[in-house]
Structure formats: structure tokens, C-alpha cells
Simulated assay, not measured.
Amino acid sequence: ALAAHHVALAGTGLVLVAAAGLGLGLLATRHAFAPLRGGIDTLAALAQAVPPVVMVALALPVLGFGGPPTLLALVAYGLMPTLRGTVGALEAVPAEIREAARALGLTPGQVLWRVELPLAAPGLIETLRTALVLSVALAALGALAGAPTLGTPVVAGLQNQNFSGLLQGALATAALAFLGEALLLAATAWLRRG
């Protein structure tokens, strides 16, 4: 039951982080939004500057106990690496290839979908791997806010000075992170073959 709640919380966090980070990364690399790039970077850096435990504690009075404060911490802490990874992957696409696509008559949207995103895919997948591991690891903090996660045995172990409970929760969280990463890599390999 704890693992199921943990997966649901981490999965929701991953979806939110991916949507926000990839979306802002795409925005930051578009010529029309270039003036906003500094502000987007600053926003992401400020969000990550607050430690996740502090974020959860500060959000408790406003969002209550359970998943919402944990999701806020997941998104805040995962935004910057996802944003920077997205920007880096898109900027790694050679300018000559973009220019060639425009010379062929492709619109900016077509250049993005048909040229930039396919070429940036390896970097974007690496970015999502990082976001996945962060989401699984940080979801354990949900136990501090009363969310039933694999961090629950860790918190109980700390309170009762029970090393085996603490170790059980930590190892289960690590195993889930490794499993999620392996599944993402397997899905990526399958898509490349197909």
C-alpha cells in the first residue's frame, strides 16, 4: 500500500515537473520569448533554492497534510534540472539543420516537431530520467506531511530509533527509483527499435 501511494505521488509529481520544465524549456528556446529567458531561469533557481523539507513545512498551513505539500516540493525542486536539461538538449541541435529545414519551407512549428524534438530526444529522455529519480526520492518526504509513502518507515524508524525500519524504507525507495529508471530506459530502447 505504501509503495502504491508512493508511485502515485511520484508519478503525479513527475508529470507536473515534466509539463512545467519541458514547457518552460521550449518557451525559453523560442526566439519570440528570448527576453523572458532570464526571468524563467531565475524563477526555476528560486524554486530550487528552498530545500524540499522546508517547502513541505511551509506549505502545510496552506495546503494541509498529505500529498499537496509534497507535490509542491516535488515540482519546485525538479523544475530547474528539467528546464535546464530541456534547454540544453534543444540548443544542442545544430543551427545549420534548423536553417536547412526553414529553407525547405517548414514553418517554425514544423521545425520544432519534425526536426528539433527528434534530434533533441536523447537529451530530453536523459532529463526525464533525472526528473524521475528526483520525484521518487523526494516523494519519500511526503511522510513528513502525513502522506503514506515509502518514507513512512523512515520517519517511524527515526522516531522510534529503529534502524531496521529506517533502512527498510530507504532501500525500498532506492529500489523503486532504480526500477523506474530501468523501465524508462527499456521503453526508450523499445521506441528506438520501433
Rank of each mutant, 00 (worst) to 15 (best):
V17E: 00
V17D: 00
A18P: 08
A20C: 14
A20M: 12
A20N: 04
A20H: 05
G21V: 08
G23N: 12
G23M: 10
L24M: 12
L24P: 02
L24G: 00
G25E: 02
G25L: 02
A28V: 06
A28N: 06
A28M: 05
R30C: 09
R30G: 11
H31M: 01
A32F: 08
A32T: 14
P35M: 03
R37I: 02
G38H: 12
G39A: 14
G39C: 09
I40V: 15
D41F: 07
D41A: 11
D41H: 10
T42M: 11
T42N: 06
T42Y: 07
A45C: 06
A45T: 13
L46D: 01
L46M: 11
L46C: 12
L46V: 14
V50Y: 06
P52W: 05
V53W: 06
V56R: 00
A57I: 11
A57M: 14
L58Y: 13
A59S: 15
V62W: 14
V62M: 09
L63K: 01
G64N: 07
F65G: 00
G66D: 04
G66H: 06
G66L: 04
G66C: 07
G66I: 06
G67P: 01
G67F: 03
P68V: 03
P69K: 01
T70S: 13
L71F: 12
L74K: 02
V75Y: 04
Y77E: 00
G78W: 13
P81N: 12
P81Y: 13
T82S: 13
T82Q: 12
R84W: 08
G85H: 03
T86G: 10
V87F: 10
V87G: 00
V87R: 01
G88C: 02
G88L: 10
A92N: 14
A95G: 05
A95P: 04
E96W: 04
E96R: 09
I97W: 13
R98T: 14
E99G: 07
E99F: 05
A100N: 09
A101K: 11
R102V: 11
L104E: 15
G105A: 10
G105W: 10
L106K: 04
L106Q: 14
T107V: 04
Q110I: 05
Q110S: 10
Q110A: 15
V111C: 11
V111F: 10
L112I: 08
L112V: 12
W113Y: 14
W113L: 06
W113T: 06
V115A: 03
L119M: 15
A120I: 07
A121L: 15
A121H: 08
P122T: 12
G123F: 09
G123Q: 06
L124Q: 00
E126A: 15
E126I: 02
E126D: 14
T127F: 07
T127K: 00
R129Y: 05
T130M: 12
A131H: 06
A131I: 07
L134N: 02
S135F: 07
S135H: 07
V136D: 01
A137V: 14
L138K: 01
L138D: 00
A139S: 15
A139D: 03
L141I: 13
G142R: 01
G142L: 07
G142M: 08
G142D: 05
